[in-house]
Structure formats: structure tokens, C-alpha cells
Simulated scan of single mutants.
Amino acid sequence: MSRRHPTLYFEDGDVVLSSDSADGVTTFYRIDKILLCRQSIIFREMFSLPMPEILGEMYDGVAWVRMPDPTEELERLLLAMYDVSTLPLKRRDPDTAILLSGAMKLAKKYEIESLRSLILRHLEGDWPQDAELWCDFRHDIANAIDLHLNNPPQFRYAGQYIDERFPEAASTLLFALDHNCPTLLRAASMLLIGRTSEWKSLQRDSRDMQYERLASMRVIHFPAVRIHLLTDAHLAALKKGAEALSAELKKVANAELPVVSRAGCRSCSDNLVVWREVMGKKVAQMLLQGPDPISVVRKLYGGNNRPETVVCQPCWARDVKAVKDYRQKLWEDLPAIFGWYEQMSR
């Protein structure tokens, strides 16, 4: 069975590409070689060869190339090459990583750097890219949970369920590993080691969601993630990372964070050590969302927590900076802590 693509079959196109779907349907695309060559190094090199060497077949009066890529992926790629607005680039959509994975794979395969960069920038915009933004992201989730819980019986806010307002971590993790995008690994990993629920168990149809108890569970158990997508190797890496971050939290609890230079006030340095011991005792109360030393440390050592009676402003400022540097260094090290580089495609 075959068909001509409804929008990507131009009568004045000078080359036909074809691809096969999973159910055996062949789709034909009649398009412009110049468009392919301008955006893709691989297509440019391919079409620079003598035509008989790469083609040898004709379809509808023009050269015909049988593509090895599945229709679902090639269609998305070609549509984006003609009109990038066809890409599903809705901000913070939980399905984005799944919907864009095929296009990203072919953009990398055919070296279409402009498209690859666009997709990556969009996903990076959905996920926090430094330690401070990660803490803000966690705060956004907490606020969203409150908003939705205060809107029974559907528990929707601004026309959406809570899991429709945030990106989904497991599919993003797989996207990052499959397409060599380490900038997406950090936040997705941190969300996955928190208090999460299986995505499929909380997705209900509209009839189910009319019942208040079921609708509320979608909020109470947020964030939900597609755990079923993860392999044993992924789960083992997440366990390894969670254990390492739990060890970091023990350091926080034991006041073992970097101590400011004693070149400042000696009494302030001593008092800061005592202060950290006091604050460290609060760590156990802040672990409900999983082992997250980055967020915990910001809450403990935020600017509003300065012990004014025992630490002067210059020493406190140096201490806050030292702790901020610690958070950012830990954030940057997350892919190595989880061991993701060993699983990442090249």
C-alpha cells in the first residue's frame, strides 16, 4: 500500500523521497533538493554525487530515493524543514521530549544543525539550567500543587491539570541520553529521585476525572513520571545518584559544608560553624521530596537566615557565596554523580 503525502508532494519538486511506516504503508514526498542541501550537510554531499550512483529509479518523472527512516520520523523532519512552526514546541508540555525525539534523531543523522539547536534550546527552556533555577523550579511545583488543591472538584487551574503544566522527567532523561544532551540530565534526574508516581496510573479519561477523589489524586501524587520507560540500567543509575546525594545531605547535617576563610573575623568563623550545626539539625525535616541537597542548602542558608547577632554582614556574605558555589558545583557534577556519561549515545 502506498500514498502521496498530503502536504509534502509538490508538482514542481525535483526529487521524490519515500519511507515506510510500521504498518507497511509507503509514503512518497516530492520536494526540492535545494531545500535539503541548504539545511543538511549529508543531503548536500549525497546530491553532489552522480545521480545514477545514488538514485537509479524514477517516480512520477523525477529521481526517487528510498529513505531508510520510518515515516513517522521522516515526515516530522521534512515538515519542520519546510515550516519550523509545525514542530510541537509548546512550552513545558509533558509530551515534548517524546514528540521531538524522532526529528532530533534525524536532525543529528543528516547534520541539520539549525533544527537540532532549535529543539535543544526549546527543551533547555523547559528545564532549569543552573542550581538557582532548579530551586525556583521546585518552588513553582510546590505553588502549583497548592493552586490545584484549592480548585476542587476537578482540581484544574487555568484549564489544565497539574501534570499538563510541567515537563515530564523520564522521557526527557531518555531524550538526553539518546541524543547526547547533557544539559537536560540534571533537572530530570533530580525530579526522578524525588517523591514520584507512575504516570500511567494517574492518567484518567474525562469520565473518570469527574470523580473528585480520582482528580485529587492526580495532584496529591504529582510529579508523575513515565517510570515504565526506564530500563534496569537507568534505575540503577538513579539509585546510585540518590545514594550519593544522600551522602551530601549528611555532610550538610554534620555542618561539613565549605567554611569561609578565617582571614575574616575569627569569632564570626567560629560562630558560623556553630550556626551550621544548628541549621544542619533541620535537614531531616526537609527530605520529603527526596535527597536534594541543592534545594535544602538554599533554604538553610538563604539571605533571610543570617544570624545577625553573631555574624557580621561581610562574613555572612562570604559564607553565602561559598554555599552558593557549593550548590552550583554540585549541580554541574550531577551527570557524573549519576553515571550518565557512560550511558549516553555519541
Rank of each mutant, 00 (worst) to 15 (best):
F155Q: 01
R156V: 00
R156L: 02
R156Y: 02
Y161H: 10
I162P: 09
E164F: 03
E168A: 13
E168P: 14
A170V: 01
S171T: 10
L173A: 02
L173Y: 06
L173D: 09
L174K: 07
F175Q: 02
A176Q: 03
H179P: 12
C181L: 06
P182K: 04
T183Q: 13
T183E: 15
L185S: 09
A188S: 15
R195Y: 00
R195T: 03
R195I: 01
T196L: 06
T196M: 09
T196Y: 08
E198G: 08
W199S: 08
Q203Y: 14
Q203H: 15
Q203I: 12
R204V: 04
D205G: 00
Q210P: 02
Y211A: 10
P223W: 02
A224W: 11
V225F: 03
I227K: 05
I227N: 01
I227R: 11
H228R: 08
H228T: 08
H228N: 11
H228A: 15
H228E: 15
L230N: 13
T231S: 15
T231G: 14
D232H: 13
A233D: 11
A233G: 06
A233T: 00
A236E: 15
A236Q: 14
A237P: 03
K240M: 02
A242I: 14
A244V: 14
S246M: 11
L249E: 08
L249P: 11
L249V: 13
V252Y: 09
